[in-house]
Amino acid sequence: MITLVTGGVRSGKSRYAESLVPASRPVAYVAPGLVPVDGDAEWARRVAAHREHRPACWTTVESADLAAVVAGASTPLLIDCLGTWVTRLVDDAQAWDDPVAAAEAVGLARESLVGALVRARADARVEARADARAGVDVVLVTNEVGWGVVPEHASGRMFRDELGRVNAAVSAIADRVVLVVAGRVLDLSAAPVVP
């Protein structure tokens, strides 16, 4: 099953996503964002705090190649978060000042991720019909952006647009989509998908 958990910053979306995967069995926690950089003590503290509260049986995978991680998964995956992933993709492409290059880099990665998720879900359904252990569950966390003022800088507008495209593409193929707002969970799974 593919579940997308979206919401604002500090809404509780990561905690809710963590509740969807087993705490007592192996899980791959996928951190697709940037690793701490020298001199950024605040970011390093955030990463360390995230690592410290995870169950000991979970492993951490730090990779921007989410399609490969999904394709090679043998345990449930918790990918947290697509917003930091888009940031890393644009950083890696050195494209903050080039919206065309940023859109190309994010678009290729988005298509690869969606393809891997669709294949993983299909494989899980085949395995379930064969009475084997059902395939791997994937829970993806993302930020919902663009609900406020239009960003002043072109790079902020590009980021908002690209993350919105990623969220819509993953939502379109997800089995379940939830919105977390102010610590409350709204299930959007039955809501129509924009054509």
Results as ranks from 00 to 15, higher is better:
1 M>D: 10
3 T>C: 13
3 T>Y: 04
5 V>P: 10
5 V>L: 11
7 G>K: 11
8 G>N: 05
9 V>Y: 14
16 Y>A: 07
18 E>G: 11
20 L>N: 02
22 P>K: 06
29 Y>N: 00
31 A>H: 00
32 P>G: 12
35 V>I: 03
35 V>W: 01
36 P>W: 04
39 G>Q: 01
40 D>Q: 05
40 D>F: 07
45 R>E: 15
47 V>R: 08
50 H>M: 13
52 E>R: 15
52 E>Q: 14
55 P>C: 13
57 C>G: 15
57 C>E: 15
60 T>K: 03
62 E>G: 13
63 S>V: 14
63 S>N: 12
64 A>M: 12
69 V>W: 14
75 T>Q: 07
76 P>S: 04
79 I>P: 10
89 L>P: 02
93 A>E: 03
96 W>F: 07
101 A>H: 05
111 E>D: 15
114 V>I: 09
117 L>Q: 08
122 A>N: 05
123 D>W: 01
124 A>T: 03
128 A>C: 00
129 R>A: 15
131 D>T: 00
140 L>Y: 06
140 L>T: 03
141 V>F: 10
143 N>K: 06
147 W>F: 13
148 G>P: 01
152 E>K: 05
157 R>Q: 12
157 R>I: 07
157 R>H: 08
161 D>N: 12
164 G>K: 02
167 N>A: 10
170 V>A: 08
174 A>F: 03
174 A>M: 02
178 V>N: 02
179 L>G: 02
181 V>F: 01
186 L>V: 14
186 L>D: 04
189 S>T: 15
191 A>S: 14
